[in-house]
């Protein structure tokens, strides 16, 4: 019997060895030269393969930059200014300042922590926000807020998200601003805000004030105090929810002071 096992082992090993030798020889002799600029560009890209540029990954973007005409050098969100400059230098094109995207950071617009937001049910299904939200909108009384199963944390290429106290939180130091979490979130409560922002609205509830308040103590009650007090007209309350227009916002912090439910919160993103 032992000879049978040995024969089988030997035959498979020999076949495998012959195949590997043929493949090594083939890849050596029939190698196709790749443009060395592709390798160089690939080296200066962050390598997170986040897909924010619209290509399948860093390799695909590097290839497209060299081989296709008119691909913008400014598409890499995590790399920001530094990478744009490096790529442009390798390709020998000018950097158009206006096209460079400002570095941004993901924010989960919800503050429905375990204390603040009562549950309407006990969810015992698979640990996925998508699955949970299909079932009557999730276990939370508030149907707009974070489900808390961490689908965003699963897709984050930088491991910047973790679920704390029932709500997903983004670590701004680790966030590369690729926006994958925003696309994954079934409640669409994650958005990218400019990294210089000093205040964010931590609520996504579009119910009227009384209902919103009943479902979550931290919910926006659409009192419009922020809208009235904003001297730059950067805040508007639409669908019973305050929203900040960061292009107009002057970071004065007035809205944070006047918000009675503290759903507009002061933040200081660390880079």
């Amino acid at each position: 019997m032992i000879t049978d096992i040995l024969t089988a082992l030997l035959v498979v090993a020999v076949v495998g060895f012959i195949a590997s030798v043929i493949l090594v020889l083939a890849s050596h002799f029939f190698a196709v030269k790749t443009d060395e600029r592709v390798t160089k560009i690939r080296e200066c890209l962050p390598g997170a393969n986040c897909g924010a540029c619209g290509y399948a990954g860093c390799d695909a973007y590097a290839k497209a930059l060299v081989e296709e005409q008119g691909v913008k050098t400014t598409l890499c969100v995590p790399g920001a200014q530094a990478v744009v400059e490096q790529i442009s230098e390798i390709l020998g094109v000018a950097v158009a300042e206006s096209e460079v995207k400002e570095k941004s950071v993901a924010v989960v617009h919800c503050n429905g922590t375990c204390d603040a937001a009562p549950k309407k049910a006990i969810y015992d299904g698979m640990n996925s926000c998508r699955a949970a939200s299909v079932l009557y909108g999730g276990a939370n009384a508030c149907n707009y807020g974070c489900v808390g199963c961490g689908d965003c944390a699963d897709v984050c290429p930088a491991d910047a998200i973790c679920v704390v106290d029932g709500v997903a939180r983004v670590d701004s130091r680790l966030c590369i601003g690729c926006g994958k979490c925003a696309k994954t979130c079934p409640k669409h409560i994650i958005s990218l805000v400019p990294i210089g922002s000093k205040q964010v609205v931590l609520c996504n509830n579009k119910e009227k004030g009384a209902v919103a308040r009943k479902n979550c103590k931290n919910a926006c009650i659409a009192c419009k105090k922020c809208e009235l007090n904003c001297h730059a007209q950067a805040i508007s309350v639409k669908d019973n929810l305050a929203a900040i227009d960061y292009e107009k916002c002057t970071n004065c912090g007035k809205c944070v002071e006047v918000c009675p439910v503290h759903c507009i919160t002061a933040v200081n993103f660390e880079v």
Binding site: T7, A8, V11, V12, V15, G16, A19, S20, I22, L23, A26, S27, F30, A31, V32
Partner: peptide
């Protein structure tokens, strides 16, 4: 050695496809 059919076929087909891919890429 007929009983080694499955495993040898897998091995051979896998490397054959890789080989063909290299050839196609070149030629």
């Amino acid at each position: 050695l007929g009983y080694l059919q499955t495993i040898v076929f897998i091995l051979v087909i896998a490397s054959l496809v890789q080989f063909v891919e290299i050839l196609l890429k070149k030629f």
